Simulated scan of single mutants.
Amino acid sequence: MKSSRSLRSLATICRQQTADPLRMFHNVRTTRVPTIPTSRPYSSSTTTSTTPPPPKSSVDPTEVAHFNALASSWWDPHGPSRILHLMNPLRHTFISRCMHGTPRTSKPPSALPSKNLRYLDVGCGGGIFAESAARLPTTASVTAIDPTPSVLAIAESHKRRDPTLTLPGRLNYLNTSIEHLPVPSNPSNDAYDIVSIFEVLEHVSAPGPFLEMAMKQVKPGGWLVMSTIARTWTSWLVTNVVAEDVLGIVPKGTHEWSKYVNEDELRAWFLERGWGRVGNEMRVQGVMYVPGLGWQEVGGSESWGNYFLAVRRPDDE
């Protein structure tokens, strides 16, 4: 019965699709999304008639409500966020390959320093990746942002269990969205070496402006790294039907198929903006969750399922 309802929902979505597969990127500037209240000084009380209002947030309020409800179970390794915990090692492996090169490449694609790296984790949730990045000996600091207050409260509470994470500047959580984060005035000095967006893009209402704001936070020569899901019949069957309806390994309502973004759409979008044009400065890796084995690298799966994508900001930008 659940699968039948999902199929009818997909059919409805498909009828609503336009002929342009990049409609979400082309039309996002006209999308009206309510501004998410944050703890940053961008509330209406600080805005005057002579001060322009902050940019619209690309965060969907229904997504915030959904993840607020899951906050208490975020750090349960056997709970609803289990597959995120299992994915985390692959995230670090992928970032390392981007920065330092691998046997698959002839030379390292960037000259990022091996120490004192500054991270920005966008949509950090309860801090699974942010905490692990902050513990690396090569990390100087991690700034982690999320618009979901209840989830960030869990992240702050869990952070206090590890004294190394409470050192000044080591790991800072901010209850805000990327649109409300100040843009670095001097990117070479003030921007981040690594900006991560893991399992977030498929939850935002306007991916184009969202990514444009994230790009401004990347240091020249730094990397924007993300993971998301391709918008295909296979991904709908796996994530919406099998994972949510049949196996229940993902909480019901976590995914909305129409928000998925294909790898070729992202690749073309970044190339149009001059990112990833040189050598191997854009990386893609397909990954798949295998029950009993966890997340596995699967070459070619980026065209129909989950994938990592990283793109390097040009040095001269």
Rank of each mutant, 00 (worst) to 15 (best):
residue 78 H to K: 12
residue 83 I to K: 12
residue 93 T to L: 14
residue 101 G to I: 02
residue 20 D to Q: 10
residue 20 D to W: 09
residue 35 T to A: 12
residue 61 P to H: 07
residue 21 P to C: 05
residue 98 C to T: 00
residue 14 C to F: 11
residue 104 R to D: 13
residue 49 S to L: 15
residue 98 C to N: 01
residue 35 T to H: 09
residue 39 S to Q: 14
residue 37 P to T: 09
residue 92 H to N: 08
residue 61 P to A: 06
residue 79 G to T: 02
residue 79 G to K: 00
residue 80 P to E: 05
residue 49 S to G: 10
residue 51 T to F: 10
residue 81 S to R: 02
residue 37 P to E: 06
residue 93 T to F: 11
residue 41 P to I: 08
residue 41 P to Y: 07
residue 90 L to V: 01
residue 118 R to P: 00
residue 68 N to Y: 07
residue 112 L to P: 01
residue 21 P to F: 00
residue 90 L to G: 03
residue 26 H to N: 12
residue 18 T to P: 02
residue 101 G to C: 06
residue 103 P to H: 03
residue 114 S to K: 12
residue 81 S to T: 01
residue 105 T to E: 06
residue 80 P to G: 04
residue 96 S to R: 15
residue 59 V to K: 02
residue 61 P to V: 05
residue 45 S to C: 05
residue 56 K to M: 10
residue 81 S to L: 04
residue 69 A to F: 07
residue 27 N to R: 15
residue 47 T to W: 12
residue 72 S to Q: 07
residue 18 T to K: 10
residue 49 S to Y: 13
residue 79 G to L: 03
residue 24 M to C: 11
residue 56 K to A: 11
residue 99 M to F: 04
residue 118 R to E: 02
residue 95 I to H: 04
residue 85 H to E: 03
residue 97 R to F: 03
residue 98 C to P: 02
residue 107 K to G: 09
residue 16 Q to I: 03
residue 45 S to Q: 08
residue 49 S to A: 15
residue 76 D to C: 04
residue 114 S to Q: 11
residue 91 R to T: 15
residue 35 T to Y: 05
residue 91 R to Q: 12
residue 84 L to Q: 14
residue 79 G to A: 05
residue 109 P to W: 05
residue 51 T to E: 09
residue 82 R to I: 01
residue 50 T to A: 15
residue 37 P to H: 06
residue 15 R to C: 13
residue 84 L to P: 01
residue 38 T to Q: 06
residue 81 S to M: 08
residue 113 P to M: 06
residue 26 H to F: 13
residue 102 T to E: 02
residue 14 C to P: 04
residue 20 D to R: 13
residue 59 V to L: 06
residue 89 P to A: 05
residue 108 P to V: 13
residue 75 W to T: 03
residue 16 Q to H: 10
residue 64 V to H: 03
residue 67 F to E: 06
residue 70 L to E: 11
residue 40 R to V: 13
residue 48 T to A: 14
